[in-house]
Amino acid sequence: MDETPGQHSKLPQVAILFAQFAAYHVDRVEAVARRLKGRAEVLAVEYATTSAVYAWEPAEGIEHARHVTLFPGQSYHDLGKMERYRAAKKALAGADMVCVGVPYSRPDIIALSWRLAAAGKRMVLMTESKFDDFPRRLAREQAKAKLLSPYKAAIVGGLRQRDYLQFLGFGDKPIVPGYDTVGLDRIRAQGGGETVRWEDRDFLFVGRFVAKKNLNVLLAAYARYRELAGAAARRLVLAGDGELADDLKAQAGEGVEFTGFLKAEAVSQQLARALALCLVSTEEQWGLVVNEAAAFGVPSIVSQAVGSRDALVRNGVNGYVVEPQSIESIARAMLALSQSEQAWQRYSDATAERAHLGDTERFADAVEALFDPTSEGASRALKFWQEISEG
């Protein structure tokens, strides 16, 4: 076990648990630690340094929270369930409130949540799951409801995540928004601050090349967009890599550029130069890249499946919400954002106005609201619900 130097505090301890830290996890725990300074010690716990799914760089920049890596230098998916359970139980023994950002259906997390709840810890679920992610089976959903019993509150992304928890019988337990957020200041600093001419902006996708990202349909829609736009057509930049890379490169026609996997700084620089982000997934619990695009006032074209649309995208106001299998609707949305600089600027300005809803200060509001229901953070969390409900 590895942790940052420092004396253990006698303040109440708020623990935040993730499988592995990426930069945006660091953003969140640091925002909470700054917010609760002098009132609580924040313990930032990650199981491992790497994983088999995400090629994130090791966590850096945790200064205000106490950072603990249970298995430094190891991969989360190489660890056994029992060793994960034992290590987490020991690390969280001194916590008063435990915010769990690992899927609650994993066997070791089920055991951990019940054990810690029995020990008097206030367990807080953090989730971005929503009902429409994929087909649901009643028996399985009923079983899930029982797994939520140890949790006394939840932090979720937005409206559909809240509705799903209520469907699962979360009852009158507190549910606050702000889970799916990133540090907008960090993203903007990485972008470099370069002034980009409208004429030089392109469409952009950022993510893994996997089936649920629906990139074959995006490429077909882009080809249709080129037919509609003619000589004025913008490029489509696909930033990422994955199992479908070869198939997508074979399908791609004129105007498509593949960058390969990019580090966080390079992603921010691509976003800062984009005309619009395209995320037309068939399954997308949230899509944090929409938050990142909003940091630069870049409008997004998203499918109905994308969770972040509830908070960050208003169809026809600051972006477009499209049907994931409709090639024509995606192409028409691309055309609408590429024809007029004046119209694009209106969309950009409206995007920038909503960007604060995707910032980690909203996550700090959520944790503060649960730590102290009389706080200003609690008032801001309530205002968040109002803003995303009213549109």
Score class of each variant (00 low, 15 high):
Gly169Tyr: 08
Ala189Gly: 04
Val206Phe: 06
Gly169Gln: 05
Val217Ala: 11
Tyr164Asp: 09
Leu204Asn: 07
Leu204His: 03
Phe205Asn: 04
Glu199Leu: 12
Gly230Met: 07
Asp172Lys: 15
Asn216Glu: 14
Arg162Gly: 01
Tyr179Gly: 00
Phe167Cys: 07
Gly183Glu: 06
Val206Gly: 10
Lys213Glu: 09
Val217Met: 10
Thr195Gly: 02
Phe205Thr: 01
Val196Gly: 12
Glu194Val: 13
Gly171Cys: 09
Gln161Trp: 00
Val196Gln: 14
Asp180Glu: 11
Gly192Thr: 13
Val217Trp: 02
Lys212Glu: 13
Leu165Glu: 08
Arg224Gln: 15
Leu219Asn: 13
Lys173Asn: 10
Ala233Glu: 02
Asn216Arg: 15
Tyr225Asn: 11
Pro177Asp: 04
Gly191Glu: 05
Ala232Met: 11
Val210Tyr: 14
Asn214Gln: 03
Ala223Arg: 15
Arg162Lys: 15
Phe205Trp: 11
Leu165Met: 08
Arg197Ala: 15
Gly230Trp: 00
Tyr222Asn: 05
Phe203Ala: 01
Ala211Ile: 04
Ala223Met: 06
Ala211Ser: 14
Phe203Lys: 02
Arg224Ile: 02
Phe205Asp: 02
Asp200Tyr: 04
Tyr179Lys: 13
Ala233Ile: 08
Asp200Lys: 13
Ile175Met: 03
Leu228Phe: 07
Leu168Ala: 05
Ala231Pro: 06
Lys212Gln: 15
Glu227Pro: 01
Val182Gln: 01
Gly171His: 02
Tyr222Pro: 01
Phe170Asn: 06
Ala189Thr: 13
Thr181His: 02
Gln166Lys: 15
Phe205Pro: 02
Gln190Gly: 05
Leu168Cys: 08
Val206Ser: 04
Arg234Leu: 12
Leu219Pro: 12
Lys213His: 05
Leu204Asp: 07
Pro174Arg: 08
